[in-house]
Design a protein around this nucleic acid. Structure first.
Lengths: 219, 219
DNA sequence: TTAAATTTTTAGGTTAATCTAAAAATTATT
DNA sequence: AATAATTTTTAGATTAACCTAAAAATTTAA
């Protein structure tokens, strides 16, 4: 069935919200991420339900159907593969690719996506460490922790970020916090939950809880 | 000023029609290429004129303004660069890339286009031999002849095609008529204007006038 | 457990891009 | 040059995606 860019974006947003919870997704939550009004969301949810891509009962919130999930994952796959392309082949920085990938994710050609995947060497994650679904829509399992959840001084490796905003990514770059960086946690401060950490064996620095919450590490 | 995909497609079509003539372009001609109705075209032409991208007086036809020309050329540039990408990097055949490039040409990022151009080695033509405008919108001059216009037996080189349809391109591929092929014209038949020609020194074959009209050669 | 606050939906409109049918203008033909 | 044929425009609708304002349902709090 034909799908519009807008419908794709709704499915993507519902998918994103569903990853964080097992509850049904509220109209308002969708509205906020879609940067639109709740009334518009209600209209669209009814339409998506008619097409069989979501399960929706009014006042009860929404969740993706199996088919909706499949579509959402194919968009995520395209988004993340294009991000790899932009960074690895086009030479963009990791904080510059999100907006362009938002456009490229809507290009429709399974053949192209699969050729791109091959051309990039079947990457498992995008430049922010987010997992890339394979052709069948299966996400590789990556068991990462939020840096903020770590309770003891130890060594870990930066594997991803929980936020793609340019300001955040630029800050990380400035601090030398790139994908793969080695982190030696020296101290965890109870007072403000800041972390005193050495990055790639450099002199240790303080990292705020706010930043640590958005850093994913492998222990 | 913001521009929609549809507006971009109208400008592209008017540009294409303008290349073939110095006259103003008729509403019907635009309607045919846009696969829509004349009434819809009239509406859009008024809108494009309001935005300053075309000069349009009702009943008098339309032509691109300087600014409209600039936009159209930037779309052509993107379309053709993406076609090179699809053939050279993704491994598509020249008859498979048009539809995908129709989508990719609307991706908005000057930075991306220029990086792509560089990545591809600043190609002068696309996989069909069509010239690629540079960053400034200047088309390289390629003085090619239609094979059908050649009057005497001689040797020439296949430099491009005047049509991108998949059936035509697949026929050329079957006949070994690829970009760069050497053509030895052995005979030109007055009766049906067919051409007896040897391709890359193979045994000569007959090529119809209809096909010859759509082949561009360098003498 | 009722009232207050919040969330969600409905009702009624708007805009962009399209359509059909009819009217107006232009071009071609006798 | 008048009429016929064609092209183009106008008028009035339609659809997708959005909006605001008001009504209805749900949740929270007194």
């Amino acid at each position: 069935m034909a799908i519009s860019f807008t419908e794709e974006n709704y499915l993507k947003v519902i998918h994103r919200l569903s990853e964080a919870t097992s509850e049904d997704i509220s109209t308002n939550a969708v509205a906020e991420l879609m940067q639109t009004k709740a009334a518009s969301v209600t209209d669209m949810l009814r339409k998506l339900a008619d097409k069989g891509w979501v399960n929706y009962q009014k006042y009860q919130g929404v969740r993706l159907s199996a088919e909706g999930e499949k579509i959402a994952l194919s968009i995520v796959r395209k988004h993340r593969l294009w991000e790899v392309f932009l960074v690895d082949k086009m030479g963009f920085n990791w904080d510059e690719v999100h907006e362009i990938a938002e456009q490229l994710e809507h290009i429709e050609s399974d053949q192209l996506v699969n050729k791109l995947d091959e051309y990039l060497g079947f990457p498992k994650t995008d430049p922010h460490g987010d997992p890339i679904p394979n052709k069948e829509g299966v996400l590789p399992e990556l068991a990462y922790s939020h840096l903020s959840d770590i309770k003891a001084t130890k060594t870990c490796k930066l594997m991803g970020v929980a936020q793609d905003s340019a300001v955040f990514l630029q800050l990380l770059t400035k601090l030398n916090l790139n994908l793969g960086a080695k982190l030696d946690i020296k101290e965890i401060n109870e007072f403000d939950r800041s972390i005193f950490v050495s990055i790639n064996d450099a002199a240790p620095i303080f990292i705020s809880h706010e930043v640590a919450k958005n850093i994913l590490v492998k222990i």
